[in-house]
């Protein structure tokens, strides 16, 4: 035990460096997912144009059925090859996780908006609220509560899935651990560390999501 802690302590700078990469990608992807997902979700909930709806569904479906791994390859290898753009592993990772997160988030936003009864819109309009006031003061405050559990779950999924970035050469906390294992031949200690680390990152979020879900029901 003491030996394990010592090993981790000695390699702390490397692990922390990897952890920042992991959290940085997750944070950036979460940020873009929220913005993109909110816009796309509101569009899907209220813009009843057949082409818009079909395009949004196709986008969502593409990120549902094609593995994230494949998307990482597409943005890291295929897109640069086809376009002569220079895309770093980190940029490819942030792009893919943002696009995936936004598609999932749009479904959460759309679902939450759809659960607000039409009569709430009527009641808001009936007291003379403008469209902006109606959304900001009546619809969104109710919808956000319903989105939170799903949105938080999505963040935990984004954090976990960042471990895939290893394959496009990003040195995240998983990659750093593997490097340390190669040098020290201590796989058990480092994988146990990763297990506890991801648990510590995701479990509180998961608990929070469940608590909120209970409270709103």
């Amino acid at each position: 035990m003491l030996h394990a802690l010592e090993l981790l302590w000695q390699n702390a700078p490397l692990l922390l460096d990897g952890l920042w990469a992991t959290l940085g990608i997750a944070a950036a992807a979460t940020f873009f997912s929220i913005i993109g997902g909110a816009l796309l979700g509101m569009m899907r909930a209220s813009w009843n144009n057949a082409i818009v709806q079909a395009a949004a569904r196709a986008y969502l479906e593409l990120f549902r059925v094609i593995p994230i791994l494949v998307w990482l390859f597409v943005f890291f290898f295929a897109v640069p090859a086809a376009s002569s753009l220079d895309i770093s592993g980190t940029l490819a990772a942030v792009t893919v996780f943002s696009l995936w997160g936004a598609s999932e988030m749009s479904d959460i936003v759309r679902g939450a908006l759809k659960t607000i009864p039409q009569a709430q819109y009527d009641a808001g309009r009936a007291i003379g609220l403008s469209g902006a006031q109606l959304h900001l003061r009546v619809i969104l405050p109710q919808a956000v509560r319903r989105m939170l559990p799903g949105a938080i779950n999505l963040v935990t999924r984004i954090i976990k899935t960042t471990s895939l970035v290893v394959i496009v050469g990003v040195v995240d906390v998983v990659k750093r651990s593997q490097q340390i294992i190669e040098r020290t031949k201590e796989p058990f200690v480092l994988y146990a560390f990763l297990l506890l680390l991801f648990f510590a990152l995701c479990h509180p979020l998961s608990r929070l999501s469940r608590r909120l879900e209970k409270r709103f029901n």
């Binding site: 009569a119 709430q120 009641a123 808001g124 009936a126 003379g128």
Partner: peptide, 17 residues
């Protein structure tokens, strides 16, 4: 909007916020 301030409405299912 100005009209609705002068014509109030109450609904079947209350619709309090």
């Amino acid at each position: 909007r100005p009209v609705r301030q002068r014509i109030g409405m109450v609904f079947q299912s209350y619709e309090l916020f």
